[in-house]
Amino acid sequence: MTAPLLALDDLVVSLRSNPALRAVDGIDVEVAPGEAVALVGESGCGKSVTAYSLLGLLAPGLAARGTVTLDGAAHDLADGDRLRPLRGRDVAMIFQDPLTALNPVMPVGRQLEDVLRVHTALHRRGRRSRVLELLERVGIPAPDRVAGSYPFELSGGMRQRVLIAMALSCRPKLLVADEPTTALDTTVQAQIMDLLRDLVHDEDMAMLFISHDLGLVAEFCERVYVMYAGRVVETGTVRRVLERPDHPYTRALVDCLATMGQGADRLATVPGSVPGTDAMPAGCRFAPRCPYAVDACRTTDPRLAPLPDGGQAACLRIGELPDARSGLTGQAEGTR
């Protein structure tokens, strides 16, 4: 792999009121230039917190620790304000709910102009025409009309396009997309994902794509980090992780998706739920929900270890587990 564009090193996010409680517990994430990398996991596993800490946007009750290296320059994550120069310029972010993510009482064009005012030397007229260009770039018909509209006058897909235009405005090197299509209906979701893929390709941006939707990840990303309870439990190429998942948690996630595709009577689920930060099991955090857990799993905390076929997984029983059931693509072929 070439020198990474983004390297997140030993990120820890803990509560200010009780630093022992960690929402994210020492994770490393790397993204190469132009690469699309996914961060997946259930709700509450620390995906979004990871993304916010990248830009120093954590809620006031949370504190981050660790370093982020962006394009060779290292930054301390502990001081969110120091990361401000990166925001919008080097790293842009789009959000899950494009309605609440836009100021309700400001025309969207003006909000775009505000971003341009910060990051470009353009004057008023220049900003105006750049706004229209950007809106056109993200596939908005009649950009002049949309620029004068308020968020509540636009559909969900349009609002997300506006946010994407905002993200493009400063030609960032990295786009962080925090569940960008979760709040949209399926057809719009596909349009937005297509748009994102084209833009990332054309602008040569890297993308950190945060999602719980393995289907989208399989389609759009090259590598994936699977997170569970604040840790990365498995990582590797999307192809390997989704076809031959090694970690029992990844297997369970892939199974859920596979049964959906087969129209099974009952959808497979992962029994139980993610433990809270105040109730972390002593050994492997997934052990209480893991069908393969043995006694050692409940006492020993597994670390990420290299796998024979590339990638890494954090499981004591790698190699002892029954052969990975044919994963996502295998299942799909099997039904044909």
Partner: peptide
């Protein structure tokens, strides 16, 4: 969320406070 967005795009804090938070 929209104040977070404004911050995420690097809009200066005084402007976020005045134009986005206070006005609304």
């Amino acid at each position: 969320d929209y104040v977070r967005t404004a911050r995420a795009f690097g809009i200066p804090e005084w402007r976020v406070f005045g134009r986005y938070a206070l006005r609304n």
